[in-house]
Write a protein that binds this DNA or RNA. Structure first.
Lengths: 243, 243
DNA sequence: ATCTTTTCTGCGGGATCCCGCAGGGTCTCG
DNA sequence: CGAGACCCTGCGGGATCCCGCAGAAAAGAT
């Protein structure tokens, strides 16, 4: 059994290496990659790898790497080991995990023991391990309580990218008016909507831009989510003949 | 001589601790704080501390901490030790460094020796040390070559926060038209402006929203910059009587 | 099959945004 | 002093956005 580490911070890499050797004595080889690209390559070469990776790497974001790895080999087991439990990350991960796949998500702030336990659970006992905090985020995200529909999240991304209503309608196969409906819905859920009564900060905010701002502040969006979205967008634009 | 470490990652903290003891034998005490708040408190208690800190901490952002520390004791020497050289960070730091202050900015990806050398330069020889990469960012940022004026940066932040033209005008003491002028300027510099000729992706983008998106993608803006801006904004809103 | 709920859609109008045009300030340089 | 460069400002108009209203279509429920 071999384990592949994908992590760009050297300190964290060597810490992980040690933890893996300690927690998994049956493991007979630990490989390291310092970014998503190298990680994908190594994962492709290895027959069936067990992977521990960071999200948020400079070269190629962890979620992208995981997506292509899982696309080629859906049975690969991946433990995400991240600093944050931003909704953007959690949503990004649960969007790409294949059905029935074994994976984990533990925070770097977790204790030594928790990490080792997660390693054993996932790689030996084939059991998913999701940190409490991350799990909470998932629930809040997927349950409709204070949670965002896939449609709402989608349109949030579209305006964050700077698309016009018309472009969004075209991209999502909707009428312009429907796009605007979803926008209104989004504004309400983000607490950005301005009831006409309050003369207080009337007209201070541009709803569209404000929605993006609070989404960022609430970590519903983050840099890597935006990068992924931008990549998707330009792929779509290239596929688009002309208007 | 005592040194204060402000850094939220335990691994990096202990690594720093070791590096400091190795590089500065004349140092007779190393204190650690795991977030900005605790760091500020410790800095206040110590007579005259030398500080090494991370930007990007969860509780209270490094730039905020540095600002209050320097406000109380401008002669404090601070070495910023960060993962990134985002323009947003570099600009944030150089905006708050007091005149004549001794400080440093080195990346975590730098070698062991570079870090130790920086420690000695700053704390012993009173000499500023700025990483090449960061320095490059500074130049590009401050020089007008592909760089952004303070005014442009300011308005970028305002639209990123979601303010309307009118609100911006009010806040910055300008007419609405002037705000719009600056916006146009900004659009041009961000490469977002759409010359009327090109029928290609005509009308695909909402310039205002798109500008914010590319600013984020180019790391001209990041989460912590937005957080600071939001705090400033709400302070200003509170100070505002009513329109 | 019928009723209900949700979502999609067109219409229309007021507010906002984007920006060309033109006039009036300040500052510098010759 | 005038010429030039720069920024600020008002005006006006076309495009876009925000959203109430109401009918049509789709998805579920009884």
């Amino acid at each position: 059994m071999k384990v592949l580490i994908i992590e760009d911070d050297p300190l964290h890499r060597s810490y992980l290496n040690e933890a893996i050797r300690a927690a998994l004595p049956e493991c007979d080889g630990v490989l390291e990659a310092e970014n998503g690209n190298a990680g994908e390559r190594l994962a492709r070469d290895l027959k069936s790898a067990h992977i521990v990776m960071d999200l948020q790497m400079s070269q190629r974001n962890g979620i992208e790497a995981a997506r292509t790895i899982w696309k080629e080999r859906p049975e690969t087991r991946i433990l995400f080991w991240s600093n944050y439990s931003d909704e953007a990350y959690v949503r990004g991960v649960s969007r790409i995990v294949p059905v029935g796949a074994v994976y984990g998500y533990v925070l770097k702030s977790a204790s030594d023991d928790r990490l080792k336990l997660a390693l054993r659970s996932i790689f030996i006992e084939s059991q998913c391990v999701i940190d409490r905090e991350v799990r909470g985020m998932q629930q809040k995200s997927l349950g409709n309580v204070n949670g965002f529909t896939e449609a709402e999240y989608e349109i949030l991304i579209d305006i964050a990218l700077g698309l016009t209503d018309r472009a969004i309608a075209q991209r999502r196969n909707l009428s312009v008016r429907s796009v605007q409906n979803r926008l209104q819905q989004l504004y309400v859920k983000l607490g950005v909507y301005q009831p006409l009564g309050g003369q207080d900060d009337e007209g201070r905010f541009n709803l569209r831009a404000r929605a993006v701002a609070v989404a960022f502040l609430r970590k519903l969006l983050n840099h890597s989510a935006l990068e992924r979205a931008e990549a998707d967008l330009s792929a779509w634009l290239a596929r688009q003949p002309h208007d």
